[in-house]
């Protein structure tokens, strides 16, 4: 119900741009997490900067809503469609309809199982690469010392959990001094991160044996930081903390010296998407089928306070 209200409010707000501007339809999954809210906010900002008329539709986690939104975009004759698909399968027919109407479709953030011919390009991050950046930071910062790492996994079986773990392991593979000694799922939540970290601390001599923490997302890292503080361990110094996502609160933790590094999963998927579309509209340049967003590493040296300020109002 609430989401419907939000969606209605969003629907009312479009149509402000100039008549001559390009019109782009955006079918968003929903607003299930802060990151997705930020993605929506940034997409609107990017569209406004470029003078693009953005038609927004919130699918409330339902594929049928997304498909009907896309059909509606096609009927309105938009110039392009951005799609953040809620699931990977079942898109063929609606993508074919878009193709017949000669409307390019750009996938944001997630992939689909349909043929590559049916969409212009996909913009997204490489989850394995994110894990590799985090692992590489650790390799660069521990030198030759022995380092026992504890890992907070995402939800068991989810693709970010599997791929980020794989990337991290790839990065530390050559360093025999770095070893993952404990790995458990914290379900991507703060509570989960805190509870699991408490058990790690119990099991590893009150934290004395732990040199670093790798968390598959920032929220678990924030929970774990609280667990360490309560147990008298100094996060950021006694235990190095590296995580992935780049939510505002982790920058605050870095500013306080509690976290060491985060790998940003940028919510700005729309920027590269609009760039590719502009090139396509201007001279028909066909972009590569996958545009990888930058997985940028932020550390305490990167003015985390300013990064926090820049992000706090994006809706995280």
């Amino acid at each position: 119900m609430i989401k419907t209200l939000l969606a209605t409010a969003a629907a009312v707000s479009f149509g402000a741009a100039a008549a001559s501007a390009q019109t782009v339809g955006f079918s968003q999954i929903g607003s299930e997490s802060g990151w997705r809210a930020a993605e929506t906010t940034l997409t609107r900002q990017q569209a406004e900067e470029r003078g693009i008329d953005l038609k927004f539709s919130d699918a409330q986690q339902r594929q049928e809503n997304q498909i009907s939104a896309m059909r509606s975009f096609i009927a309105q004759g938009v110039d392009a469609i951005l799609l953040a698909p809620v699931v990977a399968t079942g898109w063929d027919s609606v993508l074919e309809e878009a193709q017949e109407a000669e409307i390019p479709v750009v996938l944001l953030d997630r992939q689909v199982d349909s043929s590559e011919d049916l969409y212009l390009t996909a913009v997204g991050s490489d989850l394995v690469h994110e894990g590799e950046v985090a692992g590489q930071w650790l390799v660069d910062n521990v030198g030759d010392e022995e380092c026992r790492v504890v890992e907070l996994q995402g939800t068991t079986g989810s693709s970010p959990a599997i791929k980020r773990k794989q990337g991290f392991e790839n990065a530390i593979e050559g360093s025999d001094n770095i070893e993952i000694v404990r790995s458990q799922t914290g379900d991507f939540t703060r509570t989960g991160g805190k509870e699991v970290m408490e058990s790690f601390l119990q099991a590893e001599d009150g934290g004395g044996n732990i040199c670093a923490l790798f968390a598959h997302n920032d929220d678990m890292a924030i929970g774990a930081i609280q667990a360490m503080k309560e147990a008298g361990v100094n996060p950021g110094e006694d235990v190095k903390v590296v995580s992935i996502d780049g939510v505002p609160d982790i920058f605050r933790a870095m500013a306080d010296g509690d976290a060491n590094a985060t790998v940003e999963l940028t919510p700005n998927m729309a920027g590269p998407a609009f760039d590719a579309l502009n090139a396509y509209w201007e001279d028909g340049t066909t972009p590569p089928k996958f545009i990888q967003t930058e997985s940028r590493l932020y550390t305490q040296e990167d003015d985390p306070e300013a990064e926090y300020e820049a992000r706090k109002d994006l809706g995280y």
């Binding site: 299930e32 997490s33 379900d187 991507f188 939540t189 703060r190 509570t191 989960g192 805190k194 929220d219 924030i222 929970g223 609280q226 609160d249």
Partner: peptide, 16 residues
Amino acid sequence: VATADIRGADANNSGL
């Protein structure tokens, strides 16, 4: 208790 524990209210996950 859950909110005080993580010093934040996580509407998506608290008590899930």
